[in-house]
Amino acid sequence: MKVINCPLNGPRNAQEFICGGEVKLPPAPDTTGRGPDVRQWADYIFLEENLQGVVCEWWCHVASGYWFIAERDTASDTFLRSYTCQEWFGQAAPGDSAQ
């Protein structure tokens, strides 16, 4: 059984987690008034980097509903590091009084 390190709950069984996909930033909001750029959004929603190597992904510890970011190697199937969102994005999340 694989063990994943959750920033909130510590090391837990991999079966307690789901993978939420690559960390990617959404296209900027439409400010032109012409409506969203469909190609850009389709790119964001459907297309994947799908790297063979080290990737950064959203992961969720299902039992506690806690989302975080994990770095892992898709070639060797090893989990390298886990980050809280605050660590990853380098700032406190809005409404997070703990920081």
């Binding site: 790119d43 994947e48 898709t74």
Partner: peptide
């Protein structure tokens, strides 16, 4: 995805 990246495009695929 690995081969498509060599040609410079992405695919809607997870391996």
């Amino acid at each position: 995805s690995v081969v498509a990246r060599m040609a410079g495009f992405k695919l809607p695929i997870r391996s």
